[in-house]
Design a protein around this nucleic acid. Structure first.
Lengths: 219, 219
DNA sequence: TGGATTATTATGTCTAGACATAATATAGGG
DNA sequence: CCCTATATTATGTCTAGACATAATAATCCA
C-alpha cells in the first residue's frame, strides 16, 4: 500500500470509528507531514482522496474538517445496455416507437429488448441547440443513448433511481401487468452548462439491477 | 479550471466524441507534458482522474489506453436514513423487531419510520467475529447501521439496487399491499477482507429515491 | 531460431520546493 | 470599541526532479 493510501486509511479509520467526529478540525497538512515523516504533497494527496470520498471538507487557511457523515459515496456503474446484454450472452435490439420535435427539443420514445423480451421503456428529450446533428438522425437503427455517446462529449451527469409500479402505458410497452415493480433510472447530462439530454428509462424489475461499490483503493 | 482539469477534459472530450476509441493507446505522459507545456506530474494527475472515472487503463511501460466504454461511473449518494429524514423535516424512528444469533452471525430485523410511516424494512446479518461488541448490543434504541457506523470502520462496500414487488411479509411490515413496487438496496461491507455486515433494505417506492451524479470537477 | 538475459521505457510514487489564494488573526486608527 | 487594513496561515496547484517497478524491446548465446 502506498504511503498516501496508508495516511488516508489511518484518518478514515479515525473518522469511521468515531475517534474523529463531524466538525472536528484535522491537523494541518504540515503537521500531518511531520507526524507521518513524509512530504506535504503526500499528505495533500491523501486528503484530496478523503475529500473526494465525502469524508472531509477542506478550506484554505481554515484547515480541514471532518464532514457530516450523512452521505456515503459509492461508485455506481451505469452500463451501456447493448454491452450489458451482450455480456449476458443475449441479443440486444432497440425499437424506436416515436420521434417528434417538441419546441427546442427532439422527443424520442422506444424500447430496449433483450432476446426479444422488452427490458426497458425509454422516453427521452434531446436539446437540439446543444446537439444540432440529432435533428437529422432518425434513431431507427441506433438507440439515442448510444448515438449521443458517440457524437457529443458530456461533462456532467445526474441520475435519479427509484422504484414504481408500471403505468398502463409503460406496462403495455413492456408487456407486463400494470403495477409491476419497475426500476426507474432518470438521467440528465450536460456539456458544460448546456443540457444534452434528459431520459427516463423504466426497467422491468425482474430483469435489471445496478451495482455500486466503494473501495478506497479505486481512488 | 486548473491545468490538470483542463488536460483531463481535453482527453475526455476526445474519448466521448469517438476521436479516441477503446483500445487506442494514448501518448505517453512525457509526450503529453511536452504537448501541453506542463510537467509530467500535472499530466499524471489528470490521467489518474481519467483512470478513476473508468475512461482509461494505465499499464507501466505499456502506456495508457482508452478503456472499453461499457460502464459509466457515477457517484452514488447513500444517505444515512436518520439524517435524510431529519433533512426532510420529519421524525425518524427505528423499531427493532427481531434479534437473534444464527451461527457466527447476529441477525436483526426492523423497520425505519418517517413520521410514524414505515419507510423501509431491513433484514441484516452482522459477522460477530469481525464486530465482537455487537454481541452485547440490543439494537433496541439504535439502528444497527448507525451503530456500526460509529463502532467499526469499514473499508469497502458493495451495493446492489433493484426493484421488486413487496412480498407478503414485507408488505405487512411496511403497511402496503403485497406487490407494491419497492426499491431494494442490498449492501455488504468489509473491513479489509473481513465481512462486517450484509443488509437488505426494502424501501416503499413512493417514499424513497437515490441520486448519483458524475462531475469531473468533483475529483 | 528460440530462449534467456539485459536494457529500456513508461507509469507509480515520493520529495522539496515555489507561488497563488482564500480565510483568519492581528494591528492600528478613528 | 468598531472598522479597516495588513499580516499570517493553511490549502490549492504546479514544477522538477529522483527512484521504484512493471512491461516491453533488444541482444546474445546455444
Amino acid at each position: 500500500m502506498s504511503f498516501d493510501a496508508r495516511i488516508r486509511a489511518a484518518i478514515e479509520g479515525d473518522i469511521r470509528s468515531g475517534a474523529l467526529r463531524p466538525g472536528d478540525r484535522l491537523p494541518s497538512e504540515h503537521e500531518l507531514a511531520a507526524y507521518h515523516g513524509c512530504s506535504r504533497a503526500t499528505v495533500s494527496k491523501a486528503m484530496a482522496a478523503l475529500h473526494h470520498a465525502g469524508l472531509i471538507e477542506r478550506r484554505r487557511k481554515a484547515g480541514s474538517f471532518v464532514a457530516d457523515q450523512h452521505v456515503h459515496s459509492a461508485v455506481l456503474e451505469v452500463p451501456d445496455l447493448e454491452q450489458l446484454i451482450a455480456a449476458r450472452g443475449h441479443a440486444y435490439r432497440w425499437l424506436c416507437r416515436t420521434r417528434r420535435h417538441a419546441g427546442q427539443e427532439l422527443h424520442v420514445e422506444g424500447l430496449h429488448f433483450e432476446n426479444d423480451t422488452p427490458l426497458a421503456f425509454e422516453t427521452r428529450a434531446i436539446t437540439v441547440a446543444t446537439v444540432p446533428d440529432a435533428a437529422a438522425e432518425s434513431f431507427a437503427e441506433v438507440a439515442p443513448g448510444t448515438w449521443l455517446l458517440a457524437h457529443i462529449p458530456w461533462t456532467s451527469a445526474r441520475h435519479r433511481i427509484l422504484a414504481a409500479g408500471a403505468t398502463p402505458d409503460e406496462a403495455k410497452a413492456l408487456d407486463v401487468p400494470a403495477g409491476t415493480a419497475c426500476l426507474i433510472l432518470e438521467r440528465s447530462t450536460w456539456r458544460g452548462d448546456a443540457p444534452v439530454t434528459r431520459v427516463r428509462q423504466v426497467f422491468r424489475g425482474d430483469m435489471f439491477d445496478m451495482v455500486a461499490h466503494f473501495e478506497p483503493s479505486r481512488t
